[in-house]
Simulated scan of single mutants.
Amino acid sequence: MKKQRLGQSDIYITPLSLGAMSLGKDKQKASNMIDEAIYNGINHIDTADLYDFGENERIIGEAVKEKRHDIILTSKVGNHFNKEKKEWFWDPSPAYIHQAIDASLKRLQTDYLDLYLLHGGTIEDPIDDIIETFERLKEKGKIRAYGISSIRPNVIDAYVHRSNINAIMMQYNILDRRPEELFAKIAEKDIHVLARGPFAKGILTDQTIVQIEKKAKEGYLSYAYEQLKEVLTSISSFQKSNLATIALQYVLQQDVVRSAVFGASSMDQLNKNIAAYTSEKLPPDIYIQLQSITKQLLYEQHRL
């Protein structure tokens, strides 16, 4: 897989990233899956301090400690959690960020994070203080770059124009095209998107019927159940590639999207997701057809 630069940083990541949230708590299984992802060319692993209340970071730290310099490691911050009570609250204060980064580094058994993301964010946050805190962490060598994980247009706009972020993680797939309205603004600042959920909860895979019945019986976003089935049938009808390949190609079509961040809970699922990847771009006419079949949804809340 060809690596590409993330924002204006010196970080280069692969077009596929392994999202670690679904790896589970079986340490050997998680380690095997991480090894398999790396063997297949993936160099970026994404986690968060909140996943399993820190246990996810701990498992990843153990799995990658011997190959730390071969991977790009991302974690997130902002959810102040109590592992014993399994409770958390939003806390993006500088004091908590400084506390949280040290805890994450310890769990991950590393001296630094390649990318540190604010795990959410509201327009009421002390944004300038948060930005200054991330900059201080860069100066101290605890992080190489920073960004946000958000789908709130007003929050994204604030960080795009007031900070030196290199990446924005957003849910983006062929059924959830809401981020597209922000792409021009993001690209203009030489910031890149990490697209989480490229397979839309598994709906955009060879398990589409099973997953629709399991996770989208009430629909998906503004797609009603029957409409969703019709759209997916249409998408599958004019391409020789499988649905998962089309899903990845669509997400990665625009240069502003640097990587598709997918999760996997089994080795089989991991390998199927990796096998769906192709470096080939969609032909322009097919890309336009896909856009005509699907909806150009817009974010309804947290507008500018």
Score class of each variant (00 low, 15 high):
150 S>M: 03
126 P>M: 07
289 Q>S: 14
6 L>I: 13
173 N>M: 01
210 V>T: 14
257 V>Y: 00
157 D>Q: 15
99 Q>C: 10
180 E>T: 02
157 D>G: 10
184 A>P: 03
248 L>T: 04
209 I>R: 15
182 L>E: 06
268 D>R: 11
30 A>V: 03
8 Q>A: 15
223 Y>R: 02
238 F>G: 00
261 V>G: 06
54 G>P: 00
265 S>W: 09
90 W>R: 12
60 I>P: 01
295 K>S: 06
25 K>T: 14
92 P>Y: 03
49 D>Q: 14
73 L>F: 01
265 S>P: 04
126 P>K: 15
295 K>R: 14
126 P>T: 10
209 I>M: 14
90 W>I: 10
145 A>T: 03
201 K>R: 15
222 S>E: 14
203 I>R: 04
187 A>D: 08
26 D>H: 01
289 Q>I: 09
214 K>F: 08
257 V>C: 03
233 T>F: 09
68 R>S: 04
198 P>W: 06
56 N>K: 09
50 L>H: 03
170 M>K: 01
82 N>S: 04
62 E>A: 12
156 I>Y: 07
136 R>C: 10
246 I>D: 10
4 Q>W: 11
142 K>A: 01
119 H>V: 00
144 R>F: 11
268 D>W: 12
102 D>Q: 02
226 E>N: 15
48 A>K: 09
139 E>F: 08
194 L>M: 06
57 E>R: 01
246 I>S: 12
122 T>Q: 13
304 L>K: 09
103 A>D: 12
274 I>H: 03
23 L>A: 03
248 L>S: 11
83 K>L: 07
145 A>Y: 07
294 T>N: 06
3 K>I: 13
271 N>Q: 12
204 L>W: 10
261 V>I: 12
165 I>N: 06
82 N>L: 08
271 N>W: 03
200 A>H: 00
188 E>N: 13
199 F>I: 12
198 P>T: 11
109 Q>V: 07
129 D>N: 11
4 Q>M: 13
134 F>D: 02
87 E>I: 08
297 L>M: 10
70 D>N: 10
286 I>Y: 05
232 L>C: 11
108 L>F: 02
232 L>M: 15
279 S>F: 08
58 R>Y: 13
239 Q>V: 15
238 F>Y: 01
240 K>P: 00
99 Q>Y: 15
104 S>R: 06
39 Y>V: 15
201 K>E: 13
304 L>D: 14
248 L>N: 04
111 D>A: 11
42 I>C: 07
44 H>N: 15
22 S>F: 11
41 G>I: 12
286 I>H: 05
218 E>S: 13
257 V>E: 01
72 I>A: 03
238 F>T: 02
110 T>N: 05
60 I>R: 01
258 R>C: 14
205 T>E: 06
229 K>I: 04
43 N>L: 06
13 I>N: 08
159 Y>Q: 07
187 A>N: 05
32 N>F: 05
95 A>D: 10
178 R>M: 08
296 Q>E: 13
231 V>A: 05
129 D>A: 11
160 V>T: 11
172 Y>V: 01
194 L>P: 03
88 W>T: 04
177 R>H: 10
208 T>V: 15
59 I>A: 08
267 M>D: 09
175 L>D: 01
153 P>M: 02
212 I>K: 04
145 A>M: 02
22 S>M: 14
260 A>G: 05
